[in-house]
Design a protein around this nucleic acid. Structure first.
Length: 271
DNA sequence: GGTCGCCTGGTA
DNA sequence: TACCAGGCGACC
């Protein structure tokens, strides 16, 4: 589930469920989670009220009344289940019980999610680049973050210190929209293309398909690229290797950069 | 910069 | 059986 639009959505659902409530229990059901959040930290959140929920990049921060923050990161496959009577499920890796008796469950088939506690004052909060949707971010600022990067632009977009919230899908989508090759050196992008890329990231993020069309933790059926007659807007280039580019018809190519799949159109995305 | 490991599940 | 997966931190 985890790129900016998905995390934003999850954080809102979480906020509705926990804001103003007190955590009465926190159960960790996977050793990896217990490793990241040792018992001493786990005990520290019990009995604390959640003041507010904040999204920072792909992190969700539950600010507690004592100034500490529970930091949740979904990584690859996490999501919240906030259903009133959530049925027991083998992928529930953590359970947060609240003072009204409700339960918020972290559902994560791959169990790569991470929970961490940042103690009050201890500034261990993740240092992240600007949020691409923040209106205060302008092309000039973005360009300054790219100018020292000599590597290919696609992996740079995944670096959360540069820009926070872009993941593998939206990096590919944005580069396609901006007609920029993923192999172009970040530092080689001129002002015009940087501006185009920023606008493209925003467009890609804002036109994210609704959660139910994306698949994810529950129901990942819709693999079909476009289901005719149905309203499933799918990706513009992501996961479309070998299929025709929606703009020019050339075959979409898949390459590997920094160990991740990159999809792009070799004809209309120029270096 | 690139590669590996973390985890589990889905699919060819 | 092998490979792939929306992330990221540790390692070269």
């Amino acid at each position: 589930m985890p790129e900016l639009p998905e995390v934003e959505d999850a954080a809102r659902r979480l906020a509705r469920a926990v804001r103003g409530r007190t955590i009465t229990a926190l159960q960790l059901r996977h050793p990896a989670l217990a490793r990241a959040l040792p018992d001493a930290d786990r005990a520290r959140v019990i009995g604390r009220q959640v003041v507010r929920v904040e999204r920072r990049g792909k992190h969700q921060l539950l600010w507690l009344e004592d100034g500490s923050a529970l930091d949740v990161h979904f990584r690859m496959s996490g999501d919240w289940s906030v259903a009133a009577a959530a049925p027991e499920h083998p992928w529930m890796r953590a359970l947060v019980t609240l003072d009204d008796g409700s339960i918020v469950a972290l559902v994560d088939p791959r169990a790569l999610s991470v929970l961490r506690l940042h103690r009050a004052g201890a500034d261990s909060l993740p240092a992240l680049g600007p949020d691409p949707l923040d209106p205060r971010l302008d092309a000039g600022t973005f360009a300054r973050a790219l100018v020292h990067r000599r590597g290919a632009i696609k992996p740079v977009l995944l670096d959360q210190h540069v820009i926070a919230g872009i993941g593998n899908i939206y990096a590919a989508e944005a580069l396609w929209l901006a007609r920029i090759s993923p192999r172009t050196r970040a530092s080689a992008l001129g002002a015009r293309r940087v501006a185009r890329l920023l606008a493209a990231m925003r467009r890609a993020l804002r036109s994210a398909p609704a959660a139910r069309h994306r698949g994810g933790a529950e129901g990942s059926a819709a693999r079909a690229d476009t289901s005719p007659g149905e309203d499933a807007p799918r990706w513009r280039v992501y996961d479309r290797a070998g299929r025709p580019c929606r703009r020019c018809g050339a075959h979409i190519r898949r390459i590997v950069q920094a160990g991740r799949s990159t999809y792009y159109c070799p004809r209309c995305q120029r270096t």
